[in-house]
Design a binder for these strands. Structure first.
Lengths: 250, 250
DNA sequence: CGTGGACTTGATCAGCGTCAACCCTCGTGG
DNA sequence: CCACGAGGGTTGACGCTGATCAAGTCCACG
């Protein structure tokens, strides 16, 4: 349906203080007085087409990035050669922070659709951090969040059924929508079924089957990649409740 | 057999520059001139008994920690109430870095055996970081490593068989032994079978079975928690090689 | 109109979780 | 000194969830 309006692409060359994402992004951590410092550090590039790489695994680490519009996935190629999706990043979210180890990116970042990103050279961020304590603290927090997030994924992948994993992913996407002041119940999935499957450690067919079942059970409404979560609370309850307890009443 | 000698407990009150782990730990990032600054920030406490908590989930975040002797696991309680082990930490390794988000620890840290740890109040680390650029960079790297590590666990849990997970875990432990200049092929597992299982997203029985099989196939020698890896290269090859390729020659 | 990519649906099969029995070791107390 | 129980570990039988293989549908696109 409505694709990304080309108009938004022009906005790329704007400054941080005029950016619509400023309430989600680094400006949060910087007082208005210091905004020009931050602004000077940010490089704004031409948008990336679907499938093109913002950075690639094993390239020397230079910058971290923030999604400005569109969506990005990070993938790592394992020793066996197969590709594993580690995360999806939506507007206002920073990625590339895992690259610092060993001075090389440990994953590739690929645009899921035509996407604009802001690039921030990390050494500039480090310098700024020394001058702006709030920024330093914010960066530590961001990285800490990435750790928690990756751990959360690990938990999801270890002892959860296919349905639980998918619900959990949808709820995460939902709350990230809400964070951007968008609908928490209706949105468009930026990734293909196969990418959902890969991310959740499932087979593509399993994802498809679970989605069909959830649709039949009136938990969601699906139309291609457009999704509607029909009862957020019910979904949340389903994650919380120990399946063992279901039998007791029956 | 030989438990931790009580002698080592006295060494706790020593300073960073005299610590045997200084080549693995924060002193790495600090010049000898600034060592006293770091040293003043570190609190050294009485050791923790097996099963006792260094910090607990949801407590307010204050400090990060380094294992001085013994071993520590971090665990998170899920919404469903079950416990998931997120990582094991050996001497020289820092933990508690995931706590920064939201000002609360997102996991608990439990001693696997009688363990000594160094505590470093995080706000002190932040202050020091501003004065010592190397330390700041080192901290960013450490956190970045934690992200990579957690992602690596995620990869392991998504598309790998029980045997691959276990081999991978042993190889990781092996290389961490080597980092400490200890034997890469013979060591003692600080965790129980059930803890290995939990960490790897398997059932306890599956771990036990795989270990027995590996022992029969002369890949490892086991005696309780003492383990010997009989052919590191072979184990590594087993992870790398795509199982599909094995059939081709048969 | 044909082709390829994304997705769905069905049938089959195996890896691993679950349940259960059993063993060993160690610490406690009679 | 031995009996006992608890905790940790091993092994076996069985069934289920989800992977795999395969066929088929529905677009969007040239």
């Amino acid at each position: 349906m409505d694709s990304i309006p080309t108009r938004s692409l022009h906005a790329i060359s704007s400054s941080c203080d005029r950016c619509s994402l400023s309430s989600l992004c680094l400006p949060l951590a910087v007082g208005t007085g210091d905004m020009s410092l931050l602004n000077a550090a940010v490089k704004r590039e031409t948008p990336y087409d679907r499938g093109s790489a913002v950075f690639t695994q094993d390239a020397t680490f230079e910058s971290c990035y923030v999604v400005k519009s569109g969506a990005v996935k990070t993938v790592r190629i394992s020793e066996r050669g197969d590709e594993k999706i580690l995360g999806f990043y939506l507007p206002g979210e920073m990625f590339g922070l895992d690259g610092l180890t060993g001075e090389r990116y440990t994953s590739s970042a690929i645009a899921l659709e035509r996407s604009a990103v802001c690039e921030i050279p990390f050494h500039r961020l480090e310098e700024l951090s020394r001058e702006l304590p709030h920024l330093q603290h914010y960066l530590f927090r961001l990285m800490s969040q990435e750790i928690s997030g990756a751990e959360q994924l690990g938990m999801l992948l270890s002892n959860n059924t296919a349905e639980e994993r998918i619900i959990s992913m949808f709820l995460t996407l939902s709350s990230r929508q809400a964070r951007r002041k968008l609908s928490a119940t209706r949105f468009r999935l930026p990734m293909a079924r196969g990418e959902i499957a890969n991310f959740l450690g499932l087979a593509l067919e399993t994802v498809s089957r679970v989605l069909s079942r959830m649709q039949k059970q009136q938990q969601i409404r699906l139309d291609g990649r457009d999704i509607e979560l029909l009862d957020l609370d019910a979904l949340q309850r389903q994650l919380r409740q120990n399946p063992d307890f279901c039998v007791a009443t029956g």
